[in-house]
């Protein structure tokens, strides 16, 4: 089957019911999407499909429709996405394991809602971070939205 990932076409031979996460990680060596739970409960595996955040561990590869963006495909050339820049400014990551998923979730969310309230952030940013970077995640989202900081 054909997959478009970060602007590049790939053809893979994978069983239809294989989750997209493992196709990306184990077959295409794209390691940005992380394995956290395998049941759609943590968001570490988040990728964008046609701009929408998807938990790739519960998306079987045969059902993928649209271009896939992983964290590797987010910067434009050398230039980091403004959400990544805000993450650096606030030094959001601790261990960093959840952050690719957090960043992609925030990218999609800010496209839809460029001026989020705190309640919007609470409702949309549901990915787990075991290091507890939530206070800095919140601040970085506001910076990326050009709201403060």
């Amino acid at each position: 089957m054909e997959l478009m990932v970060n602007g590049e076409a790939h053809s893979v031979e994978a069983p239809d019911d294989m989750p997209l996460l493992w196709v990306l990680r184990d077959m295409l060596d794209i390691k940005g999407p992380k394995f956290g739970c395998g049941v759609g409960a943590c968001g570490a595996c988040t990728v964008l499909i046609a701009g929408e955040p998807v938990r790739s561990c519960v998306m079987v590869v045969a059902d993928v429709e649209g271009a896939i963006t992983t964290i590797e495909g987010l910067p434009e050339g050398e230039r980091l996405h403004r959400v990544q820049q805000a993450w650096i400014k606030h030094e959001v990551p601790q261990c960093g394991y959840c952050q690719a998923g957090q960043i992609l979730t925030a990218v999609a969310f800010l496209e839809r809602n460029p001026e989020p309230t705190d309640a919007d952030i609470d409702a949309e940013m549901t990915n787990l971070c075991r290091c507890g970077t939530y206070p800095r995640l919140r601040a970085a989202i506001k910076t990326a939205a050009g709201m403060e900081g």
Binding site: T70, L80, E91, Q99
Partner: peptide
């Protein structure tokens, strides 16, 4: 932090 860039670029 020394590993910041790595962690925001996956």
């Amino acid at each position: 932090r020394v590993e910041l860039l790595d962690k925001v670029t996956g």
